[in-house]
């Protein structure tokens, strides 16, 4: 009887092991919680590093090769005695700073191949948004080096989140005020004050914008400018639809963002 019992147990365990093995043999994909990455103009290096670490370990898929030290250089601890990536990144290529080198390695991975490895890395700028790319660079710099990535590195064409690269002007559409990002100039050129009041100036046809930042979030202001029909302030329902819909196509992304941040700061 014991032999039978053992055989039964072996068959059950063997079948389970086989199924588990097959399911583990295929490449593993997790479904992650989507992270919206909001890196404003005054993002701190700490925030960039934290965001970059998430990208490095998550959506970027970097650890598939870089964590193991077999397929690609080890970035986080030590690579053949040269230290972590933050230590060695400035010395890899002559004339390239750490930041330039790291950007190059993400944008053109085959431009410089570390001896002993194969050119197998995908072009990360095609997979990640500019914010994610710069966050990763900041994170890598933080591994033994100093973080010198700042908001100015991140292209202004995609101001908010990876899923909301903003409006870079309509095809052929001219930007207000020659593309200036001075919010006051934009307000002047767009004629906002023909209806709205702001800091004591302008008309009172539409809601006073002096304290708009306390009523609406930046996201809400942005939406209202791009799609005025999306919401109407209380008490102004009568006037819904009056605000022109074209402002979004008349500004470039940097202008829009500057305007939104300016208004959102009006608490």
């Amino acid at each position: 009887m014991w032999a039978t019992n053992l055989k039964v147990v072996a068959i059950v365990l063997g079948t389970l092991a086989l199924y588990t093995l097959i399911a583990n043999k295929i490449p593993q994909v997790e479904s992650e919680v989507p992270q919206t990455l909001t890196l404003g103009a005054n993002v701190t290096p700490e925030q960039l590093v934290a965001a970059g670490e998430k990208v490095f370990n998550g959506i970027g898929g970097c650890t598939t090769c870089h964590g193991l030290g077999t397929r690609a250089p080890n970035l986080l601890t030590d690579e053949k005695g040269t230290g972590a990536i933050g230590v060695r990144c400035g010395k890899r290529e002559a004339g390239k700073t750490c930041k330039q080198y790291l950007y190059e390695s993400l944008d053109q991975p085959t431009a410089y191949i570390v001896a002993g490895y194969q050119p197998i890395m995908p072009v990360m700028t095609k997979q990640l948004s500019p914010q994610q790319v710069w966050a990763v660079i900041a994170f890598l710099e933080s591994q033994g080096g100093t973080v010198d990535v700042s908001a100015s590195d991140i292209p202004a064409t995609s101001p908010t989140s990876p899923t909301s690269a903003g409006g870079a002007g309509g095809a052929g559409g001219a930007a207000f005020a020659g593309g200036s990002t001075d919010p006051k100039a934009i307000i002047q050129a767009a004629g906002c004050l023909a209806c709205h009041k702001l800091d004591g100036q302008g008309q009172v046809i539409a809601p006073d914008l002096t304290h708009v930042g306390s009523r609406r979030s930046a996201e809400s202001i942005r939406r209202k400018i791009l799609d005025p029909a999306s919401s109407t302030a209380k008490g102004y329902e009568r006037l819904a639809g009056i605000m022109p819909k074209a402002f979004g196509t008349m500004m470039n992304a940097a202008q829009l963002e500057a305007l939104v941040q300016y208004l959102a700061a009006h608490k």
């Binding site: 389970l16 092991a17 199924y19 588990t20 097959i22 399911a23 583990n24 295929i26 593993q28 994909v29 997790e30 479904s31 992650e32 919680v33």
Partner: peptide
């Protein structure tokens, strides 16, 4: 634990 695990982890749990 909000992320949905990959099949490998799930298979271990199922087993």
């Amino acid at each position: 634990y909000a992320a949905t695990p990959a099949l490998g982890y799930a298979s271990k749990m199922i087993s």
